[in-house]
Design a protein around this nucleic acid. Structure first.
Lengths: 119, 119
DNA sequence: ATATTCCATCGTATTTTAACGATTAATAAT
DNA sequence: ATTATTAATCGTTAAAATACGATGGAATAT
């Protein structure tokens, strides 16, 4: 078996498990759905908080909205607080900060305009 | 178009088909995978261009890489040019501009820190 | 002409996402 | 105590995403 094709990772290989890449992918993936983008927008614009606030306004079943909220929660973008019969979802400052950093970092990355055309 | 300024048909209704929301979701979704993020990074960092440049470096089958390139192409982020036996993929200036605008708009949206805590 | 290289596409399998209705647990109201 | 409300979770279904190997077409090399 040729040495170059051995199981050991090669020098020039890319590490897809790079934490920064993985986190950026996770964050952008969480944004990558109209419903989740809308929920975040509502959380910023209005004093919406409860699951019902979103189901009132979104053309989706309550369970579906709940599922999207879970995704945002698992990504760290929103927090969950059980306040009585209603459960309150708020923007999570740490998560939002991380997201802002991520978005800015990506913006910087894509704004390098001094690249010559390769083709 | 800034995400925050998108229109909705009724005051209390949300339009999930809003073009700005849909486009932002599409763009962020395209970024939402480690492989695609890596491909874009390679396109920016180096003079990589050909499909083989990516397959050399990514621990994935050629057909899988090709599939991810297709997603980026369909999202408008890269262009495809058949240059002989090799096919060249480059960053698409229009798409990248749109992405930058989108990312900046999202950054602005999430950076509104004058929101009071709701809970 | 033949062989080789590159890589898009096809077919397929597996996993994940997205959506729904039904159920259930908890609280609040009567 | 009983009923109503809220919303998470469960179970299911359908669709999309992800990955792979195989195939084939086009350009190049021999």
């Amino acid at each position: 078996m040729p040495v170059l094709e051995s199981t050991s990772s090669r020098i020039n290989d890319v590490d897809l498990d790079d934490p920064a890449i993985k986190r950026s992918a996770q964050l952008t993936k969480a944004l990558g759905h109209p419903v989740r983008l809308t929920i975040l927008k509502l959380l910023i614009q209005r004093d919406t908080c409860f699951c019902g606030d979103f189901t009132d306004v979104l053309p989706l079943a309550q369970s579906t909205v709940s599922q999207h909220l879970k995704v945002l929660k698992n990504t760290g973008l929103i927090t969950f607080t059980s306040s009585g019969v209603r459960n309150c979802y708020c923007l999570n400052p740490e998560g939002i900060d991380a997201l802002s950093e991520c978005l800015k970092s990506l913006t910087d990355m894509f704004e390098k305009t001094d690249r010559p055309d390769c083709c």
